[in-house]
Amino acid sequence: MTDRTPTDHTSTDHTVTHATFTIERAYAASPARVFAAWSDPAAKASWFAGPEPAHELDFRVGGREVNRGRQPDGTLMTFESVYHDIVADVRVVYGSTLHAGETLMTASLTTVEFEPDGEGTRLVLTEQGSFLDGQEKPEWREQGTGAWLGALGEYLTRTGAPTR
C-alpha cells in the first residue's frame, strides 16, 4: 500500500461533477472475439495504449490495468483500473482513477457488456464518474472513450473482423 498525502482542502475551489454516459458500438465480430481484444494484454495495448509502450494489464477479478502517457507539457497522465467482475464474453466491471501527476482528476465505475447481435456484437459501455475540481469534464471523457472504442473497431478490422 502506498502512503499518499491527504488532499489540501484549504482552497474553496473544490468541486465534484457527477455524470453517467452510455456508448454503444456494433462490431461484425463475435462477442468472444471482441472480449478477447479487450482481455488479451497484447491485443488491448495495440488499440488502447498511446504511442509510448506504458500499458500493463492483469485481466482477472482483482487485477489491475495501468495506462500511462505524457501530455504535451510533459505532465504524466496515469489511468488505473481494478477489475471487480468479469464474465467471459458477457461483461466486465471495473473501477478507475485518472491522475495528472499526483492530482486525482476522476474516479469512475465502468460496465462493458458484450451482447450477441446477429453474427456480431453490440458493445454497451456505461461509465459513472466523479469529475473532480474541473480537472476533466464528462464530455471530454465520453469523447475519449468513444475514440478508443473506435480504435477497438479499427483493431478488429485490421486483424480480420470488419466492423459495421
Rank of each mutant, 00 (worst) to 15 (best):
R4M: 13
R4V: 12
T5V: 15
T5K: 14
T5N: 13
P6M: 09
P6G: 11
T7R: 09
T7L: 08
T7H: 12
T7E: 12
D8A: 08
D8F: 07
H9Q: 12
H9V: 13
T10R: 06
T10H: 06
T10C: 06
T10Y: 02
T12S: 05
T12K: 04
T12W: 03
T12N: 01
D13Y: 06
D13Q: 09
H14I: 09
H14G: 05
T15A: 12
T15L: 07
T15C: 07
T15G: 04
T17C: 02
H18G: 13
A19V: 07
A19K: 04
A19H: 12
A19G: 08
A19D: 11
T20D: 09
T20I: 08
F21Q: 01
F21H: 02
F21G: 02
F21Y: 11
T22S: 10
T22D: 11
T22V: 07
I23Y: 11
I23H: 14
I23F: 08
I23E: 14
I23L: 15
I23T: 14
E24T: 09
E24P: 00
E24G: 05
R25I: 12
A26C: 10
Y27N: 05
Y27C: 11
Y27L: 12
A28Y: 13
A28H: 14
A29G: 00
A29M: 02
A29I: 03
A29S: 02
S30Y: 08
P31D: 00
P31Q: 01
P31Y: 04
P31L: 03
A32F: 13
A32G: 15
R33M: 09
R33V: 13
V34S: 01
V34P: 00
F35S: 01
F35A: 08
A36E: 12
A36N: 05
A36F: 10
A36D: 11
A37V: 03
W38R: 01
W38Q: 04
D40T: 00
D40S: 00
D40F: 00
P41Y: 13
P41Q: 10
P41D: 06
A42C: 08
A43Q: 02
K44F: 10
K44I: 10
K44D: 06
A45N: 00
A45F: 03
A45Y: 01
S46L: 04
W47M: 02
W47F: 01
F48E: 12
F48N: 10
G50Y: 12
P51L: 15
P51N: 14
E52D: 15
E52L: 15
E52C: 13
E52S: 15
E52V: 15
P53T: 03
P53M: 03
A54C: 06
H55T: 09
H55R: 07
E56L: 14
L57G: 00
L57K: 04
L57Q: 03
L57V: 05
L57D: 02
L57I: 03
L57T: 03
L57N: 00
D58E: 12
F59G: 02
R60S: 06
R60T: 03
R60K: 08
R60A: 12
V61C: 01
V61E: 14
